[in-house]
Design a protein around this nucleic acid. Structure first.
Lengths: 164, 164
DNA sequence: TTCTTATTAGTAATCATTACAATATAATAA
DNA sequence: TTATTATATTGTAATGATTACTAATAAGAA
């Protein structure tokens, strides 16, 4: 698996690291690939568990560090600790609302037109080209059965070569 | 100080507790008053430190519990861990954007029209009357010197009887 | 290939928050 | 007012995700 081709989206993340003059290591490639293969909001531990089967020597610390690096570069977004006490990340760069369930701690993406306007407002007021931020609302997913289906559709396929 | 009149806004918070059938204790009153006396985004420890001079026996656990209670009731908002590793709360219920400085961890309120529209969108899409949520964008406050003044104006005075 | 230095791995330390249990007290009714 | 009882408070101990640290490794440049 380690020698499989790298999906475009993962290449994007790797390219961001390279653009910063950071070293491209097998660990970082694996983490970028794992990130882009997900449509949920993984934690460092989630990714570590997933990666270990293909990459038994990877360390949890490396996963933490790489996520922090990518996050500070704006390549991914840290949602902070959501309900449970762990930091969740997301790769979905499309503007959207994150719905956090107060009961089960799951996070659901809700597409939003309002966010686009909000980002525009932030860009204008702060003079930032690409603002980093997060929008979170709390729900009880049992009250919104439809939410359970909202994360099932993989993000639109940009023509990447799938490696699974 | 413990026997001073309670400002209206603090009475609001106390009233919410009472409305839930919870007991009105001197600790809870003190915490509600401390919360409403602030125009920043205090942590449990911040409030504990402030309260101890007037209320030497109050415990940190009580502050944590009361903040959690008020937060779950929607009376205040938890901003989660902002930059530093501590949970910040806010009493400002006016819709606004929270700007978190990546350098100094300060949090600045930015009034926003877009948030109103966003909340309306959430209300409509989820059928929730008063959505609980938070909107956070990250900045570097040194790039935005004007931010340092944005929290200086106390929230508009609603006619409460000041007790300081 | 060699060299330099960033990165990784493994473990130990941190520390905000939560859990717990004994004590105190708010609220209710007699 | 007093008794009653469930809730709240306190102080301390436990938790556990994240970070700090250091030796060993390996990416990238020459």
């Amino acid at each position: 698996m380690k020698n499989q081709p790298i999906p475009n989206r993962a290449l994007d993340l790797v390219g961001i690291l390279r653009g910063e003059g950071l070293r491209i290591t097998p660990q970082r490639i694996a983490i970028c690939r794992a990130l882009t293969g997900r449509h949920d909001h993984p934690t460092a531990q989630n990714l570590y568990d997933e990666l270990r089967s293909d990459f038994p020597t990877i360390s949890l610390t490396t996963v933490y560090q790489t996520l922090d690096t990518l996050s500070r570069l704006g390549a991914i977004t840290s949602l902070g600790r959501a309900g449970d006490d762990t930091i969740h990340y997301e790769v979905n760069t499309e503007p959207h609302i994150n719905l956090v369930c107060r009961d089960c701690n799951q996070i659901f993406d809700l597409p939003s037109q309002g966010i686009r306007l909000l980002e525009q407002e932030v860009r204008q007021k702060l003079g930032i080209a690409a603002p980093q931020g997060k929008v979170v609302y709390y729900v009880h997913c049992n009250d919104h059965v439809d939410l359970h289906h909202s994360n099932e559709n993989p993000r639109e396929n940009h023509g990447e070569n799938h490696d699974e």
